[in-house]
Amino acid sequence: MYPAPFRYHRPDSLDAAIKLLERLGDMAKPIAGGQTLVPMLKLRMGDVNDLIDIGRLPGLAEIQINDNEARIGALATHATIAASPLAERIPSVRDCAGGIADLQVRSRGTIGGSISTGDPSTDWAPFLHTLRAVVEIQGPAGQREVAIDDFVSDAYTTVLKTGELVTAIRFPLPPPRSGGAYIGYKRAAPAYPTCAVGIQLTLDEAGVCSAARCVLSAVASTPVTSDAADAALVGTGVTEEDLKAAGELIIAAADPPEDVRGSADYKRSVLRGLFLQAGTKARQRATGETIEGSHSYV
């Protein structure tokens, strides 16, 4: 399969890229790792006149841990993130980064590209909800920040305006006695996930949950969160029963599409299982246990 022709540009600075995108308008697209865009172009699902290669823009791939905050450059690849000290410190980051597609895709795909596609089946955007991340955006009108909750507005749709690019993702480092997990279910590594669940917890000294943030992926046009579910976990010991109760609250907010990966009811069942697993793993991690997490397969 062959993409339709397009022009190629490789600006050498972020400013130049933004100017070019702005000048060329909506028929120009930025490409970073290209792991979502290239297959789309090969399927000729639409027209692009110009590709702006932002993959090599300097200074956008760094992963930093500051005092209270982590900052991941938009061009950091999934593979780099999975192997980073940040992932060592926050294992759910590795769950997410290391569970995306396969090795080869993780070598190329970037966190910024992933969230910018707004694809309902991707992992980063929903996962980052659990860490209450903020997206740094640069565009013709300068810099702005958008909470991840507000970033993806619909399927394949984000709040990015013409000429705007994601430059970094930032999130506060979880306080002590925190733990999180992100678990997806898919039939094979390079296949789309059926659905995924992310949970981030903080426990108090008595082991009682003091803060929680849960998210579901691939079961609606945008990531699904539920303040009620988060609230339901707070004050509990995050037992199986607690997780089941909270799970029902958030799953009620999901609207899973029926597709080749299953019916809506089936997906709800999978969500229940994943919610239990992710919640248990998050609790164990919050209490200091080292638990490997990964996606499950057929």
């Binding site: 046009s221 599409p257 029926e258």
Partner: peptide
């Protein structure tokens, strides 16, 4: 086109 995103057309169509 139907196999895009696994054929999850209906949900999106409705919205």
């Amino acid at each position: 086109i139907l196999s895009l995103a696994g054929g999850s057309m209906r949900g999106y169509a409705e919205s």
